[in-house]
Design a protein around this nucleic acid. Sequence first.
DNA 1: GGCGCGCAGTGATCCATATCAAAAAAAGCA
DNA 2: TGCTTTTTTTGATATGGATCACTGCGCGCC
Lengths: 256, 256
Amino acid sequence: MSNFGRIASLRPPVAINLAERSAASSCGDCGARHHGMCDALSDEELIFLSGAAQHLSLPAGKLFMEEGEPAQYFYNVNSGTVRLFKALPDGRRQITGFAGPGHFIGLAGEMNMISAEAMEPVRLCRFSRAGLRSMLTEFPALERKLLDVAMHEIVLGQQQMLLLGRKTALERISSFLLSWAQRQEICGPGKLPRPHARLSLPLSRTDLADYLGLTIETVSRSLSHLKKQGLIEIPSIHEIVLLRPQALADIAEAAG
Amino acid sequence: MSNFGRIASLRPPVAINLAERSAASSCGDCGARHHGMCDALSDEELIFLSGAAQHLSLPAGKLFMEEGEPAQYFYNVNSGTVRLFKALPDGRRQITGFAGPGHFIGLAGEMNMISAEAMEPVRLCRFSRAGLRSMLTEFPALERKLLDVAMHEIVLGQQQMLLLGRKTALERISSFLLSWAQRQEICGPGKLPRPHARLSLPLSRTDLADYLGLTIETVSRSLSHLKKQGLIEIPSIHEIVLLRPQALADIAEAAG
DNA sequence: GGCGCGCAGTGATCCATATCAAAAAAAGCA
DNA sequence: TGCTTTTTTTGATATGGATCACTGCGCGCC
């Protein structure tokens, strides 16, 4: 077990995201089974790994990884949600994804290829990138898991490219609502949520706009439009009720 | 060496993409070193793997993988270029990437998450997806390699999301020309091509439009605009000379 | 309770890019 | 080679979503 064991003995053995271990679920986007990041490892392995990590708590809004800086660390989210984004010098911003409990951040590249910011209070484990390769060699199950989630992320990215490149504002919003329902595991793999499913939406309109490649005004108008059509209800700013998921799906996929 | 060895003995030992082995190069997008897919394996391993593959030759235009169908196979490109895309029922199409020699296609998901089509005559190796997991276990170096390229693909996807979600037509074209130059290894990692570098562009305007989330008319107009500004020359439909790469970079990143 | 401030919604206008139309250039093909 | 077909370029017009401007709401704070 080499160096990880040694480090672990010096630190409290808090497992990486151990809380997530039981939360196994099947993915609607590709039919594969995705689990909390570390369900692949034994308790013992998690404890060793955890020893190699620094445990951080960040306040909402904290930018902890910045595009273009040398990639010293990579991170595993324990709780809270992180916004991943790229920005242009003039301030335009594209959110490329959201990382929740169990997600890894900052694995690719010698430089950070993306910025990461806490959207709410976040706890995470920070690892030295220098140790990544030996970690993977030490724990083949972790490598397999990373490959699985990386491939899943590629699939999500492809879906987002279709959305950003070819869908209308209304289609983007509809697609987003349905994919967010899946993310929240409100509905099973590839299935629609049941009518009247309630979605919690802890994003500001600005985040939503920057994720969907729209302006906040267009996001607001599109949501109002769906409401007027009776497809959704908006009981509060951070809650949306999907009255007619099938109708949303028809819009999202330009069917009907 | 289990089953792959047995299969190999029944077939001519043509290595997967062996030609690519010497073509190692460093990547401008993230500073990491990416090699031809199989440089991680020994000749012997390649021969075994190759034995598990069916070797196919496809004509230009051949659609060999279709979104939504059960994922029976995955592929490794030997020569030629493949277009990867998603389409909406009404015909709108988003090309999410291009796969050249050494690239793997169809690794993710129980269903094909994307369609793949030969852009020119293509030779590829086809593997059964059922054997993927044992292949990875058998050849850990392959797994590491796949993880590397998957992470690289994620980085490219994030760049494309920024382009599709937030960049103007002119910025998209400029970004594309520069990234295509890197892809063709006309310039080093993260560097600009030298002034007057000649780019070969084996894409139709339609492919370009569907990759950049624009219409063919806008693509054509943007290229004409760059030509009028003296930043590029267009000696033929499939060739572009980058007269002033720095100026293109300024447009691409909304600097200057 | 009232005040201030940031966020969200809505209306009016504008503009970048799509759409429609046609000419020009290139690619097949007999 | 000349004819046909397809692709690209260019022009004219339309439009979806951006931008600008303002109103309204929720919430913390005094």
